[in-house]
Simulated scan of single mutants.
Amino acid sequence: MPSNKPRYQQVLEALERSIEAGEWKVGDRLPGELQLAERFGVSYMTVRHAIQHLDSSGLVRRIRGKGVFVADPPEERGTEPLALLLPQDWYSMDPFYFPLIVKGFQAEATLVSRRTVLADQSDRPNRYAGLISQKVAAVACVLLGQPDVHGMHQLLDQGVPVVAINKHPGARRIPTVAPDNFGGSYRATRYLMELGHRDLLFLAGPRDSIDAQERRKGFLEAIRRHGAPGTRHRVLEGGFVEESGLERGRLLAKKTPLPTAVVSASDVSAIGFIRALAEAGL
């Protein structure tokens, strides 16, 4: 599938063409993810990413335990859709975090009888023009990686309501919903010390990430306020991806003494870290 477009988007467009051409009709079950992955020469995760977009658009519907089926044409509701903008390659960035955001967004939209549109932040000028042409009622944008904050402000200037998920220094005009990064890290660290741990390790995240910065501050502040005499702490720099946790775990496994407790700035990097310790028999 030679193209400059992301692979999931190529699969998405190929599936749309096949459905429009009548290869699968309303009510037909699509082939399984592994079959489609073999057909398009991609991973099953790429296929799953594409199908999630089709499900969001209403072209297919997923029935738990049965599969994915071509849906009836969406009814005209007389209401504009709600759009969710995600980072480019969001599914490969974090296959746990982003699907939960998508699921929650779609569930809330259903409660107010709104269709949803999922889009990523690639091909940015055309992407925003497309959202405006679809007359979306509002846009929620996940500000992670390198978000196009300028594009968000353009939507605001066009009269489209926009809300950001996560903080970004350039998005001060945009209403924001964000997790309590500082408080979560602070409470986790304090809890471990209340259990008696006196040698703690923090798996840090990217230095240019506001989330990572706040989680680091929460860890260090908990150590400062609640650390008993003799409490030791270390910080291992790294990223939010599983490979980063794996590398740091392998590095730590060669050193002594080992910490008695670990606080991680990312669940995905924590998975890699745990894998490394298991490899070392720890």
Rank of each mutant, 00 (worst) to 15 (best):
residue 4 N to A: 05
residue 6 P to V: 05
residue 11 V to C: 03
residue 11 V to Q: 10
residue 14 A to E: 12
residue 18 S to A: 13
residue 18 S to K: 14
residue 19 I to T: 08
residue 21 A to F: 02
residue 23 E to D: 12
residue 24 W to Y: 15
residue 25 K to P: 00
residue 25 K to Y: 01
residue 28 D to H: 09
residue 29 R to S: 13
residue 29 R to Q: 14
residue 30 L to D: 00
residue 31 P to T: 12
residue 35 Q to R: 11
residue 36 L to S: 00
residue 37 A to I: 09
residue 42 V to K: 07
residue 46 T to N: 00
residue 47 V to S: 13
residue 48 R to A: 15
residue 48 R to Q: 14
residue 49 H to N: 15
residue 51 I to A: 13
residue 53 H to P: 01
residue 55 D to T: 15
residue 55 D to E: 15
residue 63 I to E: 15
residue 69 F to E: 03
residue 69 F to L: 05
residue 70 V to F: 03
residue 71 A to Y: 09
residue 72 D to E: 15
residue 75 E to M: 02
residue 75 E to F: 00
residue 77 R to V: 08
residue 80 E to P: 10
residue 81 P to V: 05
residue 85 L to F: 08
residue 93 M to A: 09
residue 95 P to L: 01
residue 104 G to I: 02
residue 104 G to S: 13
residue 109 A to F: 02
residue 112 V to W: 11
residue 117 V to T: 09
residue 120 D to E: 14
residue 121 Q to G: 09
residue 122 S to G: 14
residue 123 D to H: 07
residue 124 R to H: 06
residue 124 R to S: 08
residue 128 Y to S: 03
residue 135 K to E: 15
residue 136 V to L: 13
residue 138 A to K: 03
residue 142 V to H: 03
residue 143 L to W: 00
residue 144 L to C: 06
residue 145 G to T: 06
residue 148 D to M: 02
residue 149 V to K: 08
residue 151 G to F: 01
residue 153 H to Q: 14
residue 159 G to E: 09
residue 160 V to P: 07
residue 162 V to F: 00
residue 163 V to S: 10
residue 163 V to E: 05
residue 170 G to S: 05
residue 171 A to T: 08
residue 173 R to S: 10
residue 178 A to M: 12
residue 184 G to E: 07
residue 184 G to D: 05
residue 191 Y to E: 08
residue 201 L to E: 09
residue 201 L to S: 14
residue 208 D to I: 01
residue 209 S to T: 06
residue 211 D to I: 05
residue 211 D to T: 15
residue 216 R to D: 11
residue 220 L to H: 08
residue 223 I to F: 12
residue 226 H to Q: 03
residue 228 A to G: 05
residue 230 G to K: 08
residue 232 R to F: 03
residue 233 H to R: 04
residue 236 L to Y: 04
residue 237 E to F: 12
residue 239 G to R: 11
residue 241 V to E: 14
residue 245 G to L: 03
residue 249 G to W: 07
residue 250 R to C: 08
residue 254 K to T: 02
residue 254 K to D: 03
residue 259 P to W: 06
residue 260 T to F: 00
residue 264 S to G: 14
residue 267 D to R: 13
residue 270 A to C: 11
residue 273 F to I: 05
residue 278 A to G: 00
residue 278 A to Y: 13
residue 281 G to S: 05
residue 281 G to D: 03
residue 282 L to D: 01
